[in-house]
Simulated scan of single mutants.
Amino acid sequence: MGTSLLYLLKRTELAVRARLEELLKPAGITALQYTALTVLERHDGISAAQLARDSFVTAQSMADMVRALEGRGLIRREPNPANRRERLIALTEQGRALLAEYAEPARHLEERMVAGLSDEEVGVLREALVGAWRSLSRPGQPG
């Protein structure tokens, strides 16, 4: 039997995160903060709880991250018209500009990651990762 898939996925994640941290160092943000900003780019105006889920961090980590990103002027919080106690998080123009500045370097990092694969293999990998995520996201499944 070969190396565990769990191990291989974690090793790849850590390598991607390390390269992303290097890439983002000049911007003064972390890979996790970048991930949160990209989530907001796709789903602007969401709650901190949803942003935490979509960014793969705890609610407490997200609270700290929101304060940091808001302090940098990359996001803003606005009252939710449907729930006065909740505030929705949205990108600022400064946040959008940062994402635009790093879109091409991030794309190059992804291309580097799959450089040894054909287009067909990249498609298969993408489908396999989505399928694995869906399998693990089903509620009520042990392990």
Rank of each mutant, 00 (worst) to 15 (best):
Thr92Gly: 06
Val114Met: 06
Ala49Met: 12
Asp44Arg: 02
Leu8His: 06
Arg77Lys: 03
Glu13Ser: 06
Asn83Pro: 03
Phe56Gln: 05
Ala27Tyr: 08
Val124Asp: 05
Ala31Trp: 05
Thr3Phe: 13
Phe56Gly: 03
Met62Trp: 01
Leu37Glu: 00
Leu117Trp: 12
Pro79Ala: 06
Gly123Tyr: 05
Glu120Phe: 11
Ser55Leu: 08
Gly95Cys: 13
Arg126Ser: 11
Glu111Gln: 13
Ala90Asn: 04
Leu125Val: 07
Leu9Gln: 09
Ala48Tyr: 02
Ala82Cys: 06
Glu22Asn: 05
Leu99Met: 07
Pro81Cys: 05
Ala49Tyr: 12
Arg67Val: 13
Met65Asp: 01
Gly71His: 07
Arg67Ile: 12
Glu22Asp: 12
Leu20Arg: 00
Met113Arg: 01
Leu14Phe: 11
Thr58Phe: 14
Leu69Val: 00
Val66Cys: 06
Ala128Leu: 06
Ala52Tyr: 02
Glu111Asp: 14
His43Pro: 00
Ala132His: 10
Ile89Arg: 01
Val114Arg: 03
Pro139Ala: 12
Ser47Leu: 11
Gly95Met: 08
Ala52Asn: 02
Pro105Cys: 11
Arg11Met: 15
Ile89Gln: 02
Glu101Leu: 14
Leu32Asp: 12
Asp64Trp: 12
Arg77Tyr: 10
Gly71Asn: 02
Tyr34Pro: 00
Gln141Asp: 14
Lys10Gln: 09
Val39Thr: 05
Arg72His: 01
Leu24Gly: 01
Arg76Leu: 13
Ile29Val: 15
Ala63Glu: 04
Ala31Val: 04
Val124Leu: 09
Arg138Lys: 09
Ala59Lys: 07
Arg67His: 10
Leu136Glu: 10
Pro81Thr: 01
Gly28Lys: 02
Leu98Thr: 01
Gln33Ser: 13
Glu120Tyr: 11
Asp64Phe: 15
Arg17Tyr: 15
Asp54Glu: 11
Arg17Cys: 12
His43Lys: 06
Ala106His: 07
Ser118Thr: 10
Arg76Met: 10
Pro105Gln: 06
Asn80Tyr: 09
Gly28Ile: 07
Glu104Trp: 15
Pro81Ile: 04
Arg67Phe: 14
Glu120Pro: 01
Asn83Gln: 10
Arg67Trp: 10
Ala68Cys: 11
Glu78Cys: 01
Trp133Asn: 06
Ala49Asp: 11
Leu32Ile: 12
Glu121Met: 03
Arg42Val: 08
His108Pro: 00
Ser61Ala: 14
Glu104Cys: 03
Gly140Glu: 15
Arg53Leu: 11
Arg138Ile: 12
Ser4Pro: 03
Lys10His: 06
Lys10Glu: 09
Thr35Gln: 07
Leu88Cys: 02
Met65Ala: 07
Leu109Gly: 00
Ser61Thr: 13
Leu8Ile: 03
Met65Gln: 00
Leu32Thr: 13
Leu125Cys: 07
Ser55Val: 03
Gly73Val: 03
Val122Cys: 04
Arg53Ser: 10
Gly2Tyr: 08
Leu99Asn: 03
Ala90Gln: 06
